[in-house]
Amino acid sequence: MVRLPPLNNLRVFEAAARHQSFVKAAAELHVTHGAVSRQIAQLEEQLGVILFERRNRAVFLTREGLQLQEACAPALASLAEAVERLRHPPADAPLVVSCEPTIAMRWLIPRLGRFQQRHPAIPIHLFAAGGALDFATSRIDLALRRDDFPRDTTLYSAPLGREWVGPVCSATLAERLAKGSAPVRLHTQSRPDAWTRWQQLSAQHLAWGGEQRFEHFYLCLQAAGAGLGLAIGSLYMAVDELADGRLVAPFGFVPDGSRYLLLSPSPIDADPRRVALRDWLIEEFDASAVALQAGACDNA
């Protein structure tokens, strides 16, 4: 692999070659004439060729200097354009968003149509994933996560809403509960301490008729809707089914101390697309919480 000279040396050379003057290059780059001269001398030493002839206090490109200028000028221009696109993406560029699978399927996707109606020029590319995320290698713009894992504190983080949890089940099972039936308790490996945490927060202690476990949270909620037992549900992941009666929350919901966040590798205020998605997400999270506070989702 060819070892390239330092980028700053090439940048100084390009300016000096374009102006045919170390003085004018120094003025453009806001450095001293001596700094330009040193950078050019370092580059000539690294390449083993003379790039400028110095005559009568003027500089002239050599044949080798002309060859390097022909390659260097378009390469640096292309690099500058790429950096500018990264810093200021076009308004109609898609946003690549990573979202935890269950909240993506049960809450975000049913609402995305409203975002697209409001912002038709901002397409969303959605990826289902949870936990920690390496923005540098994943090519993800934003991530929607619950703050239940260690994360890089240098990331931009916008709080979207508090997590609310409570047992949910089918209406038929809720009727049996009201008559004193002991239900099956449904567990999920992705939230193994959900029941313990809810009992501590709600001071509720129930008698159980059995236990059943599921690998994923969405499978556990699906089983609850099918009448297999009681599952600890997130308000946001159950709000639509609670509203239309497919699920019932016989004991209501309590905040569990965690939050949903929108994460970004850098501040988002300079990108109108990211700002639009953040503001819309906050609005939708607030609307779901209002439904709870109004009693629309509390079937106790």
Rank of each mutant, 00 (worst) to 15 (best):
R176N: 08
S157L: 04
F135H: 06
Q199I: 04
S181Q: 14
D147A: 09
G180M: 08
D193V: 10
L142D: 08
A182C: 14
E175M: 11
D152E: 12
R191M: 09
F149S: 01
T137I: 13
D152R: 11
V184E: 04
D134S: 09
V168R: 01
D152S: 02
T137F: 05
H187K: 08
F135A: 04
P150D: 10
A143M: 07
H187Q: 11
W198Y: 13
R197F: 07
S157R: 12
A143L: 10
Y156N: 06
G180V: 07
V184G: 01
H205V: 08
D147C: 09
C169S: 05
E175T: 11
T153R: 12
L144K: 04
R185H: 08
R176H: 14
Y156M: 12
A132E: 14
A171M: 10
G180S: 04
A182S: 15
D148Y: 06
L133T: 08
W195M: 06
L173R: 02
L186V: 02
L160Y: 01
F149L: 06
G161N: 02
R162W: 07
C169Q: 03
F149P: 01
W164S: 12
H205R: 10
E175H: 13
S190E: 14
L155C: 03
T154V: 10
A136S: 13
T137H: 06
D147V: 10
